[in-house]
Amino acid sequence: MGKIILENIRLFGYHGCMQEEGRIGSHYTTNIEIELNINEAAIHDDLSKTVDYVHLYSLVEEEMKINSKLIEHLAKRIIQRIRKRYKEFLIKHIKVKICKENPPLQGDVDRVCVILDD
C-alpha cells in the first residue's frame, strides 16, 4: 500500500450560502490523500499503474469552478469523481480537506475547513 498526497492546492471559487459569497468569491486550499496499492507503479516505473496526480489537480480545478453552497458538497463531488475515474485501482481510502480562506464571520478567523473521509 501507499499514498498519493496533494497538499495545499490553492484555487479561487464561489462557494457559500451567503449571496455575497456567490458574487465576490474566496480563496480555497484543498488537500487530497489517496491510499491505494502503488507497488506495481513503483516496481515498473509506469504511470498507468497508479493515480496520476496531474489529473487529480485538474479534477479539483474543474470541481472548484462549479458553485456550491457547502464545501462539504464540493468535497463529496471530488471524492465521487476520483472513485469513478480510478475505479480500476481499488482505492482503499480517500480523504479530502477543503479550507475557505478568510470566511465571512464576525470574528478573526483565518480559515474554516471541512474534512471528508471516504
Rank of each mutant, 00 (worst) to 15 (best):
G2Q: 08
K3R: 08
L6Q: 07
L6W: 09
N8Q: 12
R10W: 05
H15I: 06
H15W: 03
H15E: 01
G16E: 02
G16P: 12
G16W: 00
M18G: 07
I24D: 05
I24F: 02
I24L: 06
S26V: 08
H27T: 12
H27W: 13
H27Y: 12
Y28T: 04
T29M: 11
T30K: 02
N31C: 15
I32V: 14
I32N: 03
E33M: 04
E33T: 02
E33I: 01
E35I: 08
L36R: 06
L36H: 12
I38F: 11
N39I: 02
N39G: 05
I43G: 00
I43T: 09
I43P: 08
I43A: 05
H44C: 04
D46S: 02
S48K: 13
S48P: 01
T50M: 05
V51Y: 11
D52G: 02
D52M: 00
V54Q: 08
H55T: 08
H55S: 09
L56E: 00
S58Y: 14
L59S: 03
V60P: 03
V60H: 00
K65T: 15
N67G: 10
S68G: 05
K69M: 10
L70Q: 07
L70H: 07
I71A: 00
I71H: 07
I71S: 02
H73F: 01
L74F: 04
L74N: 04
K76Q: 15
R77T: 11
R77P: 13
I79C: 02
I79K: 04
I79F: 01
Q80K: 02
R81Q: 06
R81T: 01
R81A: 04
I82V: 05
K84F: 09
Y86N: 03
K87A: 13
E88F: 14
I91H: 12
K92A: 12
H93M: 10
H93F: 14
H93W: 14
I94M: 04
V96E: 05
K97W: 02
N102E: 08
P103Y: 01
P104G: 03
L105V: 06
L105A: 06
L105S: 02
L105T: 07
Q106P: 14
G107K: 10
G107D: 10
D108W: 07
D108C: 11
D108F: 04
D108E: 15
V112T: 09
V114D: 06
I115E: 15
D117S: 08
D118K: 01
